[in-house]
Amino acid sequence: MAVDVGQFRRLSQTLTGCTPLSLELADRYLDNLADRPEAARLSELGTRLEGGEDPSTVLADPELKELVRLVLVLWYFGLLDITPAKALGPEQYYSGLFWSVVHAHPPGLSGGYSGYWAYPPEN
């Protein structure tokens, strides 16, 4: 695997299109990936992206596609996989990027006042 947390965060930012990502979560997600065989190619993924390769070219590489998918599912939904879905915990669920990207909040955690939904989002 041989990527450090800083490099993992950078490649995650490139793949998700979201910046800045939490270093603490990056650390945990890197741990979560450790047991997955796809993670053996993390170093190659990081090197190619840092070398300026377009992320869509990397996604098109059948050897890397699954790893890219795993990284995205982790950040967007806090899940280790989709089918079957493997949860990591409440904090990861609440941290899923999907909800803020679509100007919403994870179901169960609005943080809003009563009636906020009558207005367009502020985020």
């Binding site: 793949l15 998700t16 869509s56 098109a60 967007y76 939904f77 990207v101």
Partner: peptide, 22 residues
Amino acid sequence: PTDRLRSLLDQGLVGTALRNEL
């Protein structure tokens, strides 16, 4: 929403393009 992410990935979208389309 995970279905939509998967579908966009299958269409070759990733990075900022993926985020914007999502």
